[in-house]
Write a protein that binds this DNA or RNA. Sequence first.
DNA 1: CAGTGGTCTAGACCACTTC
DNA 2: AAGTGGTCTAGACCACTGT
Lengths: 255, 255
Amino acid sequence: MDTIPDPARRDTSGNRDSLHQRIMRDIEQRILSAEWMPGDRIPSEQALTEQYGCSRMTVNKALTQLAQSGLILRRRKTGSVVKRQDTRTAILAIYDVADEVKSHGLTYRYTICERLQRHPTMQETTCPGFREKEALLALTVLHLADDEPFCLEERVISLSAAPDAAEESFADLAPGAWLLNHVAWTSGEHRISAESSNARVSKLLKVTKGSALLVVQRLTWRQGEPVTRVRLNYPGHQHRLTADFTPIQGLRPNS
Amino acid sequence: MDTIPDPARRDTSGNRDSLHQRIMRDIEQRILSAEWMPGDRIPSEQALTEQYGCSRMTVNKALTQLAQSGLILRRRKTGSVVKRQDTRTAILAIYDVADEVKSHGLTYRYTICERLQRHPTMQETTCPGFREKEALLALTVLHLADDEPFCLEERVISLSAAPDAAEESFADLAPGAWLLNHVAWTSGEHRISAESSNARVSKLLKVTKGSALLVVQRLTWRQGEPVTRVRLNYPGHQHRLTADFTPIQGLRPNS
DNA sequence: CAGTGGTCTAGACCACTTC
DNA sequence: AAGTGGTCTAGACCACTGT
């Protein structure tokens, strides 16, 4: 059938890729070029072992990775097949606001507009995960790019998860970055929505009242206990989240 | 140091996990529970081989997966260490509109509001990827949930990438689903923003003019050639994108 | 130089699934 | 029963990197 791609597996001089990587990319390429369509059968491990003149472990490693990245389905007896394409998943990077501003080549600065310790509001106890009567630290932070308002951050920190936060001034490090360095988290959730800006947010962000805001809410837990809840309000006209995606799930090449 | 977790590697009866999976989860658990903090050294493959009484390949498989999922860093000579946590990546699922509506338990319906063949506008040639004078099919589709407007889709299809689309009525299958079944793609991009609705969109979605819209733009390429560009306008008050995330990059457990 | 990970082999046994 | 993938072993050689 196919010619053996390269009988000499190992160049004595410049061997860039490992063999299992090359097998993986060969198959990946045939799938992405639509040479092998969804449902088509992929040669068995035995067949690939002969084709590449290597051991089964090496082939297995390649196919296992392809299965993990969502390109193929593996079934016993019937063999592996190309998986149906699906646009559903994309990897979305939501950066730290400071990194985001600096990546645009602008100067970054922030100010703490408001800071108070309080207990959960009615809304907070009903909605996500904060317990009643828990001590919370509420912060409002304005992030500026070239001294113009860029993003308004409304954050609530659980003082049971991060007791040190009560004594922290956040003068040198914004609360988001500080938390990342001081408290470990085990799971999180992003909620992205569009809202019309209210009077308070409009004033701080210097946008007209009622204009569209892109709102990113992030909730973070540590072993099931809420750590922090943050709401990032971006003026809709100037901000945009982007997410590249490929049929290959998992890690991006530009990581 | 540590007790050997389970000297008998293989239960004769109920062995649920493979050994490399268990090693992986053991280490993962210690990292997520903050027992091992960022920068801490992970036992060498040799040490783990002895701890678990297995071969090095098995340990290697576990550590390789942990490295791929972004939990650890592997370096020769110095060994593997726990990686610094990072909130940047999240997996975002952007579903087909029909699936999305049905998942809320509502009835789904769509209507094609507008359809025309045209060439790229000035804006399109300057911005993303459509060539000049290419034949395009432009569609406006209104998606309804329980017969109420749910999302307005503005789509442009490249007729060189999908020639069959010119003859297709899209009566049985909405353009998005039709394309997924008929044209393979190799890369894509999502752009998420918030905008105030203009007169045309407001009228079709039955929202007040100027209200906040969540706008999801999706661009799809096939081998560098643009396939389709779609703009999904959701009324901001009723829609929200959510994305769960963990320190573990890659596949979600609920896939 | 010595420690560590990166890769590979040539077998082996088992589990699952379809025939 | 037979084909296929899932896992594991006990070695091996090499590449990289810090001391």
